[in-house]
Write a protein that binds this DNA or RNA. Sequence first.
DNA 1: CTGAAAGCGCTAACAC
DNA 2: GTGTTAGCGCTTTCAG
Lengths: 321, 321
Amino acid sequence: MGKRTTIGDVATAAGVSVATVSRVLNGGAVKEDTAARVWEAVTTLEYTPNALTKSIFSGRSNTIGVVIRDLNSPFYLDLMRGIDEVAGANDSLVMFANTYRHPDREVAHVRTMDEQRVRGLIVTTGETTDARSRSMTANGTPCVVVARAVAGLHSVILDNVAAGRMMAEHLVACGRSSVGVVASGQRPSQVERTAGLRDALAGAGLPAPVVVDAGTEDEVAAAVSTLLRGRPDAVVCLTGRLTVATYTALTAAGLTIPGDVALLTMDEFAWAAALGITVVAQPSYEMGRQAASLVVEAPADPVHRVFAPTLVARGSCGEAR
Amino acid sequence: MGKRTTIGDVATAAGVSVATVSRVLNGGAVKEDTAARVWEAVTTLEYTPNALTKSIFSGRSNTIGVVIRDLNSPFYLDLMRGIDEVAGANDSLVMFANTYRHPDREVAHVRTMDEQRVRGLIVTTGETTDARSRSMTANGTPCVVVARAVAGLHSVILDNVAAGRMMAEHLVACGRSSVGVVASGQRPSQVERTAGLRDALAGAGLPAPVVVDAGTEDEVAAAVSTLLRGRPDAVVCLTGRLTVATYTALTAAGLTIPGDVALLTMDEFAWAAALGITVVAQPSYEMGRQAASLVVEAPADPVHRVFAPTLVARGSCGEAR
DNA sequence: CTGAAAGCGCTAACAC
DNA sequence: GTGTTAGCGCTTTCAG
């Protein structure tokens, strides 16, 4: 484990200069047999170029930084896969950091990504990181925010108002009229979904939904039992992260779905099909692809890509007329 | 977006040499007011040190490379979170690449990680990447293989034979006698689990289990229906990746669990508790932590850490006597 | 076509 | 304490 072999070692072994080695490695004009000698040396010495040093010149690595709030959520996971897929297709690696919904870590991680001179940055973080994202943008590092529209930065978002409305419409079509909602926090996405739901319900002449807030899975049981006191005929969960907990709370209360209560949730997930749970899905994989594409294409002006939600009806709200 | 500000710019602004700036940044001995001037310049110029260049000296970045076969699996996801957690605690970032179970990409990605001079590498790949992992080890980059023991490399694995045995014992305790198994491929983990299951069943004087292979979720339906022709009173799924599909195939066949058939699967997952599915769990998060720790600690000799599986009984196999 | 030499941004001796 | 001077491994003019 002495020093690693460098381009200089290869040059010596092949009896050429480092410049020549660099050329054959990067496809410059080199006489054929010279190149052959170099390749041979490369192979024998098992030379692996140092990508770090390379990036020093461009001042930029071929890595896409991703700062996620919570990998443990079907949405973020699929998003991640979409990003990874596009990164791979563009010879880029993904540098990843999870913040576990911890604001302090968000800024620290974004900073670290900047220090790593990532080629671009994709974040699902809160406003705390916007300042740095802006300065990074000014320095030529494209930054895209997912799930939140921000002036001056690229963004990839769901039409959350439409999602809320879509939920309401489906419930109305299924003949439900008393809606309870499990929401989580005050992020724009949650607020907008709630607004859309509220509006559409009002538009259909139904009473306003009761909305309870649950920050973590542990809080869901209490939130749902609060909801159930109002004897709703439908329960909506506005974030995929809390779907399991909501489902558990409902069944633990002895309720059948959709007999006693309809269940409608956000975000597609593997078990939804198996359990017949109706969801309003986000095209998360595609959103990840688009986010990564924005990094790769680096358009000069801020681009906001809004995606439409999709209703995947599976019966957990009963039959729609 | 001209040139980024460098340590030189800061030095000029503060009226000191780059060495001094470097010292205040990295905690060397500097007079207090000099340091203050430097920090001021750092702030005004929004200087963000280039981590890439720093790594050039150590010949090594502070990044842990992770090459995963399939993020879309509860085991790998938790593993990843464990890795991320330890990496974060050690000022390291995680550089991630998914191979989508594609051998070619495995070697390519591992090579790229090497080029990035990762501080260490964690892979869940097949034998194809072992050669490079060995040479990386020789170059001082600790490599740890997850879910597969490899001579000369660190490894973090489950005691798969014990897991298989544990499954058999639970089924026997629940009075089941005719076992059907959904396995996936010939990876050591699958083979060993099958062997453990087979042995323990034989030890209990029961007939050998029928084992069918399903590579992907799409193949599960057919595999399960083959199994069902033998009228088993228990179905075991040896990989968490195929749990949903197995469950779906069973319920689609109109079978009730555990009434008509017991269901026992590998790997803990969020919905298992909600659905009362009994699993044999791997301490995946802890395994991720240990893998990352091996990278951080970089022991000289290969370390093989074997973890014990845990049975989480939830009733999907009936009552154990 | 190929080599010599000048950096890229930063750290690490070595002097003052 | 602080500045000077070498490099780290690689790319890229600029000559030859």
